[in-house]
Design a protein around this nucleic acid. Sequence first.
RNA 1: GGGCCCGUAGUUCAGUGGUUAGAACGAGCCGCUCAUAACGGUUAUGUCGCAGGUUCGAAUCCUGCCGGGCCUACCA
Length: 517
Amino acid sequence: MSGRSTFYVTTPIYYVNDVPHIGHAYTTLACDVLARFMRLDGRDVHFLTGTDEHGQKIETAAAAAGLAPQAYADKVSQSFRDLLGTMNYSPDNFIRTTEKRHYAACQALWEKLVAAGDIYLGKYAGWYSVRDETYFAEGETEVGPDKKRRAISTGAEVEWVEEPSYFFKLSAWSERLLALYEKNPRFIGPDSRRNEVMSFVRGGLQDLSVSRTSFSWGVPVPGDPKHIMYVWLDALTNYITECGYPDTGNPNWKYWPADLHMVGKDIIRFHCVFWPAFLMSAGLEPPKRVFAHGWWTIEGQRMSKSLGNGINPAELVNAYGLDPVRYFLLREVPFGNDGDFSRRALIGRLNADLANAYGNLCQRSLSIIAKSCGEQVPPKGAITDADTALLDRARRLLAIVRAELEEQSFHKALTSIWEVIADANRYVDAQAPWALAKTDPVRRDTVMWVLAETIRRVTLLVQPFMPDSTAKILDQLAIPADARTFAAFDRELESGTTLPKPQGVFPRFVEPAAAAD
RNA sequence: GGGCCCGUAGUUCAGUGGUUAGAACGAGCCGCUCAUAACGGUUAUGUCGCAGGUUCGAAUCCUGCCGGGCCUACCA
């Protein structure tokens, strides 16, 4: 192939006990933007998402639905696959843990852990609720006045149960994990999570139960098929299954180690502690970086099934449009922080940032060109200091955005881009091309060229965030398909190119009720 | 209980020792008229959670208090 540097980015594989909501959409969106950016920037990208389909919960849920586990998993997995189209995601593959190749990868990894001496047979003991069919940690239970111990969350009685289980010697890995974090400060992001993980590991690690005998929906342990692999060992392995593991001669093996595992903050431990320990034990490289983003609240309230306030991404897209939703999610909140999702905030962003600032900049500029410059890219005449100032700010944007996305600072990348959009709007007012039309049409043409060129640069950079809308704008600038990557970032607009009739790309959102007034 | 973090204009936040504490959105006023009644200019608002302390000087460092959040492992 080529010597292009690879970029492997993954979403968590989503557990099929829930239908997709805005939280899933958010994680995958962040990865999608990175994947698109890196592709435009010339990287050899592999972007993976998929579903996690094993475990007792699925076995139970399937039985309740009167379906075989596989049939149940097929159904819910499809709803996650549907989300790809709804949100315009661009994964290179959608992996499922029920694929044959994944069983092979899990079992191969298991055998490596055994060979490394990190697996032993022991007993898993804990407070088990027969009614809930699950174990509870000591702290999740309490002894009531009748001296009986119950699970706090469900109120069900629990009993002390022991079952045979294989264990992974996680306790032996504390020092090596800490060394990994020390040596690679970028391994966990943001920094607050890194501190959290490090203090957790410093506190000492217990061995991890990595098999169960209480259910059968999962990957059998090699040589002892009564045991099913712990679902997390199974799930995490998907990242290397995709690369062909255990066949390191597979063409996809070039993508390992992953550049980035994107995760929600709830599963950071699995990715930052268990996963690198498994990998290092098996003699594999850990991923380069794990980034944990925050949670969305909905109109100030925690998202929860019981409140029924989970947001269906498809409904959101129907109401406000796909690209505004994509933009809002990554612009509104510093990536890594928790944020609040509100209709008011979304509409504010849509109207202020998209319709008024960016959309109107395009429309007012392209309208003048269409009406007064003969529907073609106007000639670039003598360049003034004001022109150079604006053009330079737009030119510098690529390096800025690249650096921000390297740190997953989506909001900062967008802020930087929108500063130039604001500069461009100021420039229009300062240059007043409508006045120049009467006094100096040659200068007017140059001003319009500068604006078109600035819009071109800005729009190239917005592509990963809002692919559909930016494609329309680039069409209106008659940018050929092969001039839309960052390799063409410095290829200036050619004067004389015929332009199509401009059309607004980001209409203002008006409340349906208000529109009727 | 232990650990970590946060509390700054109406709102969201930036600012981690040094002149009169900033930005965006929202609000008022003025201007422009190319544009999606969009754009530009301008004004206003803050006991920087509270109380002490260190310092020539603190939103910024220390202590205590009040308020809020996160972590404290094997459902995922």
